[in-house]
Design a protein around this nucleic acid. Structure first.
Lengths: 139, 139
DNA sequence: TGCTATTCGCAATTTAATTGCATTAAAGAG
DNA sequence: CTCTTTAATGCAATTAAATTGCGAATAGCA
């Protein structure tokens, strides 16, 4: 668990509990955003005793202090979570067959906001972009 | 209900039932993709007696014959549905405050597929793009 | 070490969606 | 138009993700 993350948890007034540290450690080692169920399975494998509800509550707490990002991938019916640290702005591609998720490095949309604000009169805060298709193994 | 839609339902071997016609009619008149719950409320308002389960089953049937598109908006925990007819490829913007959804007319991503396929070795099938922000009334 | 607010674990609940099954009705045949 | 077959419906029950209530445990600090 990164020292900066530890500091931010402390600074927020939240506590560094056994389960919270374990949740952060797993998220930090993940290569793609994890669902609560995947997180639970990974924690089991690490022999961390934890109730699924506690995972939800920790994710919610970490999200509320801005350490974790909650996202939902196209056509999935569950939330996923990732550490914000070092994953500033990026998008994903998801395999329609096996569900494998990979990061995309580029974001082609930075210039688009002004155009959309003109078109819709919304103030744009965010965007999500996701591709789906077939990963190398499923082709 | 459009004649072409009626034809496609018939051609698929599915039946033109009272409830199915009502579901299509509401979807055709919608300006943005509807959730099953919204659909139910709109049908109630039109005095159409229908069980929520029947809405789910009709949406599933209409989707399976390609008349309806199922989508999930970022951070929402329910599916939405729209007629494909006349809404070929587009994206949405959703108000973070009131949930209002508007269509976007442009799609800037058509040229991007090749680049992504090279980067990830996936074969790209689809993409979803969604903006969120604040609508005129919520600003 | 002891105090107190936070966090935890378990049980129960909520909400979207799905499934089982007996009944109803669409639509083609005669 | 009536009969027959089979898809579709309505209701009840179930599944799965997420949330909430509450007493017990514990992190952090005096």
């Amino acid at each position: 668990m990164k020292a900066s993350v530890k500091d931010e948890i402390r600074a927020s007034g939240k506590r560094l509990t056994r389960t919270r540290k374990a949740v952060v450690a797993v998220l930090e080692s993940a290569k793609y955003p994890l669902s609560p169920a995947e997180l639970y399975a990974l924690l089991q494998r690490r022999k961390v005793a934890i109730d699924p509800v506690t995972i939800y509550r920790n994710l919610s707490a970490l999200k509320s202090i801005g350490l974790v990002r909650q996202l939902k991938l196209h056509q999935e019916d569950q939330f996923r979570y990732e550490m914000k640290e070092g994953r500033e702005h990026h998008h994903h591609i998801r395999c329609k067959s096996c569900g494998k998720i990979a990061d995309l490095l580029l974001c082609p949309l930075k210039k688009l906001t002004a155009m959309i604000e003109r078109e819709t009169r919304f103030v744009v805060g965010d965007h999500s972009l996701e591709f789906s298709g077939w990963c190398p193994r499923c082709q």
